[in-house]
Structure formats: structure tokens, C-alpha cells
């Protein structure tokens, strides 16, 4: 892997940029490196994002210069670690009160609600990363026909499970938070639970496919999921 940028910042972290833009190919490299770097001694935490990752280390155990050599070595061994992504099917109720921006998407795209839903559910997405808030799942890439940009003014409060679109990205909120994504639906599944370890069953690199459910199904799954009696198993 040539051309990666390795920048030490703040005395105990290293920023590794694999490439500049968002692409599945680049993201796959990030995840491969992420799983390898986690195993290094002296590395406290590795955080993957779209095209870069951040490594937090203990300078009492390892110095930056050694770390940089190791990062370069591991980055060069591309393909040695084979990622085994799992695939999850996530139920979503679309439109209405659950997807308050569905009207906006219809307006902007000229498609019908059924067409928007069909396009959104017809793709297997890749989880690029989780963050900025706990359990927020970033997926890509969205079909160009429904790639609607973020809202000009973010909402103050968005309920957990809300499924949105932001340009080429789709995904959902793990916890209640502010945010500017265009909301088209909501999943009843509790995907982020602070009392579970790990708190989210989706990991970076996993595959996600959405399927449409009715409001009744939403309520039924919601009730079970809140009680911890509903599990989404990987296929």
C-alpha cells in the first residue's frame, strides 16, 4: 500500500490516511489495517473511519518511530488479513411519522414513495464506520437516484433508529441526537445498547440490507427489541 500518510499528533496518537476520498476499495484497506493494528503491543485503541484511521498509543510502552515502522510494514502486507464481513437484514418502516423527510425526497427526486423505498432496499450496503455519536452506522453507497443532500438546518432531536440519507451515504442513528440527515424511515431494532458488550452488533466492514415492514410489524418488533427478545442474526 503506497502513498499512505502517517502523521503523529499530540504526543500519543497517530493519524493514518490511506486515501483522500470515500470509496469502498479504500475503506476495505482501512478495515484490514484496523484489525491488524489492534493487535500491536502498546496500542490502546484504533479508530477506523472512511479513508483514515487514528491510533492511540501508550508512549511508555512504544515510541512513535517504532510504531511508524510497524504501520508501514503492516500496510505493505495488504491482503494477508482476510476480512469476513457478516451480512445483516434490518427492518425499516418507511415514510409517515417515521420518515418525516420522505416528502422532501419525493419532491427532490420526482420518484414515488414506493420507488424510493424500492431503490433504498435493493442494495447491499457496506458499513464504512460507526460514530460520530454512539452506534451511528454509516453505510454506502446510495443509488444516485435518491442521493439527496443533508438538510440545510440540522434537527435538534432525532429518535434512535431513524434511517436517513446524506448524499451517497445512508445509515441510522443509534441514540437520540441532533443531526442533519434526510430521514426516510425508522428501524424498530435496538442496534445500540450501552449495557451490551459490544454495544452494537454492527461492526465496520459488515454488510447491511434493509427491508420494508408495516407499522404493525414495527410496533411488534419494537416491543420485543426493547425487552431484549429480538435479535438480528447475521446471514
Amino acid at each position: 500500500m503506497s502513498g499512505i500518510k502517517i502523521i503523529p499528533v499530540g504526543g500519543r496518537s497517530v493519524y493514518v490516511e490511506i486515501c483522500k476520498d470515500i470509496s469502498l476499495e479504500c475503506n476495505r484497506k482501512v478495515h484490514a489495517l484496523y484489525y491488524k493494528l489492534r493487535e500491536l503491543s502498546g496500542v490502546e485503541e484504533v479508530v477506523p473511519a472512511y479513508s483514515s484511521l487514528l491510533l492511540i498509543y501508550d508512549p511508555l510502552t512504544i515510541g512513535y518511530k517504532d510504531l511508524r515502522d510497524k504501520i508501514e510494514d503492516l500496510a505493505a502486507q495488504e491482503g494477508v488479513v482476510e476480512l469476513k464481513p457478516r451480512k445483516f437484514k434490518i427492518p425499516v418502516v418507511y415514510g409517515g411519522e417515521y420518515g418525516p423527510d420522505m416528502k422532501l425526497v419525493i419532491e427532490k427526486t420526482g420518484l414515488s414513495e414506493d420507488e424510493v423505498i424500492k431503490i433504498h432496499t435493493s442494495k447491499v450496503y457496506t458499513c464504512y464506520m460507526l460514530g460520530f455519536t454512539p452506534g451511528f452506522v454509516y453505510l454506502g453507497d446510495v443509488d444516485d437516484r435518491i442521493a439527496v443532500p443533508r438538510l440545510p438546518t440540522p434537527r435538534v432531536k432525532i429518535p434512535p433508529g431513524s434511517v436517513g440519507i446524506a448524499g451517497k451515504q445512508t445509515g441510522w442513528y443509534g441514540v437520540e441526537s441532533p443531526g442533519g440527515w434526510v430521514l426516510i424511515g425508522r428501524t424498530p431494532v435496538v442496534t445500540f445498547d450501552p449495557n451490551r458488550d459490544p454495544p452494537s452488533f454492527i461492526r465496520p466492514g459488515d454488510k447491511v440490507e434493509f427491508y420494508r415492514i408495516s407499522e404493525d410489524e414495527y410496533r411488534e418488533i419494537r416491543e420485543k427489541s426493547m425487552k431484549g427478545e429480538y435479535e438480528v442474526k447475521p446471514e
Partner: peptide
């Protein structure tokens, strides 16, 4: 492009 952040940044 969104990237990881920690305290101090």
C-alpha cells in the same frame, strides 16, 4: 472526509 477525533484536537 470524516475522520477520527480525540480530545486535544
Amino acid at each position: 472526509t470524516s475522520f477520527p477525533l480525540i480530545e486535544g484536537f
